[in-house]
Amino acid sequence: MNTILVASDLSARSDRAVLRAAHLAAEEGADLIVLHVVDEDLPGALLQTRCEEAETVLRAMIGESAVLVDLAVTVLVEAGHLDRLLPQIVRDRKVDLVVLGTHRSRGLAEILGAPTLTRLLRGVEVPVLVATGRTEVPYDKITVGWDFSPASAAAATLARRLAPEAQITLVHAWQDACAGVPYAFETGGTVSPLALEQLTSEMAREAVKLSDGGPAMGCELVVGPAGHVMHKRAEAGEADLIALGRHARSGIARLLLGATAEDLAVHVPCDVLIAPPE
Rank of each mutant, 00 (worst) to 15 (best):
K141S: 14
L24V: 04
G44K: 12
R59F: 05
G237Y: 12
T116A: 14
I62C: 15
S192M: 05
V73D: 00
M230C: 06
V77T: 05
D212L: 05
L19I: 11
A184S: 13
P276W: 12
I168P: 01
L194S: 11
A207P: 05
A163P: 07
R91D: 06
A236G: 08
P138M: 04
D147V: 04
R93C: 06
L32S: 01
Q175C: 04
G237K: 06
M203W: 06
P182F: 14
A207E: 04
A234C: 06
S250K: 11
A177W: 06
A253N: 05
T49L: 13
E55G: 02
W146Q: 01
I89E: 00
L255T: 08
L129E: 01
G113V: 10
C219I: 05
R84G: 04
F148Q: 14
E235Y: 12
R16Q: 10
G224C: 05
I4T: 00
V34M: 02
E165G: 03
I242L: 15
S211M: 10
L129S: 08
V90I: 09
L97R: 00
W146V: 03
L108A: 05
Q88Y: 01
V69L: 14
P138I: 05
R59L: 12
A195M: 10
T190L: 10
E165S: 12
V223H: 03
L10V: 10
C270M: 07
D96F: 02
P43E: 08
T74K: 03
G133V: 05
T3V: 02
L85V: 01
A234I: 03
R233T: 07
L112M: 12
A30W: 00
T132R: 11
V38Y: 02
A12Y: 11
V191K: 01
A265S: 11
H103T: 06
V272A: 01
E186D: 12
E238T: 03
G218D: 11
T116N: 06
S14W: 07
Y183R: 14
G113L: 10
L10G: 10
G180A: 10
